[in-house]
């Protein structure tokens, strides 16, 4: 469902070093990244801040064009076929809403129905289903700017799934959520993957997400893949009895050293 082959992305950073002098530096946000995610998988994508997680997500969704390598998502090259891909993929950014700030949630959803050309009947039943599972009923008529973070995140997730995409990509979907909201989001994602077979890739700093949701974990550091395997494999990299926090800390610091 998702294939990356030798993908790299560089950024040119200009730093002012004198009154007129500028230093140009090439930063490799992602280098020579290759992995595959099969249909129906639930993959956690881990990495310290600045490791290249978001850059990867943005390349998978077609927001950023890779500087090298090849990407296929749902059979399409994201940067070349971005608008076609948009119909086959759902995207959630935890840090930032993709909804319209001043519009009530309900209007946002109607707008999305038209943008994605979803049939009215299909939309109604899908929306009713999502409203029930994500408990959106209480705030459907509030403008997005008035929603709490937990409500907004559930609204964002619903918005990403209204067109029933086979792939869902989430960038830190549980960031800043309280334990109850977190549990609600996790339950929903698990059900989505189990019942509808949606392929899910999520980035997170919350290791609880990984433990409770992901069968497979990928760890990126300094722009390349440092670990790829099951949660059990991940645990096996550290001495017996270590908590998952300790396991991951070991991996992060080992890579940095």
């Amino acid at each position: 469902m998702i294939e990356l082959d030798g993908v790299g992305r560089t950024f040119t950073v200009r730093a002012r070093t004198g009154r007129l002098r500028r230093d140009t530096r090439v930063v490799h946000a992602v280098r020579d990244l290759s992995f595959e995610v099969a249909a129906g998988e639930f993959v956690g994508y881990l990495g310290p801040n600045g490791a290249g997680k978001s850059t990867t997500i943005k390349m998978l969704t077609g927001i950023l064009t890779p500087t090298s390598g090849r990407i296929q998502v749902a059979g399409l090259d994201p940067s070349r076929r971005r608008t076609t891909l948009a119909r086959r993929i759902g995207v959630v950014f935890g840090q930032r809403t993709t909804l319209w700030w001043d519009l009530p949630l309900r209007d946002s959803f109607t707008l999305i129905r038209h943008l994605y050309k979803v049939d009215q009947k299909v939309h109604q039943s899908r929306l009713a289903e999502l409203c029930e599972v994500l408990e959106l009923g209480g705030f459907l008529d509030k403008p997005v700017r008035q929603l709490s973070l937990g409500q907004r995140m559930r609204g964002d997730i619903a918005a990403a799934l209204l067109h029933d995409p086979p792939v869902l990509v989430l960038d830190e979907p549980t960031i800043g959520l309280d334990v109850v909201s977190k549990a609600a989001v996790r339950d929903f994602l698990r059900g989505l993957n189990a019942e509808r077979g949606t392929t899910v890739l999520l980035t997170t700093h919350d290791l609880g997400d990984i433990e409770r949701l992901c069968r497979r974990v990928m760890l990126i550091d300094h722009g390349s893949l440092a670990f790829d395997g099951t949660v059990e494999d991940l645990r096996a990299t550290a001495p017996e009895g270590a908590s998952i926090e300790e396991v991951v800390t070991r991996l992060y610091t080992r890579q940095a050293g």
């Binding site: 077609g62 927001i63 971005r82 948009a86 950014f93 993709t98 001043d102």
Partner: peptide, 22 residues
């Protein structure tokens, strides 16, 4: 503001979206 990313994940030209935003 980073809001342009949100326009790029929709199946509609970002040009149209930005032209009519507010």
């Amino acid at each position: 503001a980073g809001t342009f990313d949100a326009m790029l994940i929709r199946p509609v030209s970002p040009f149209v979206q930005i032209a009519v935003e507010r």
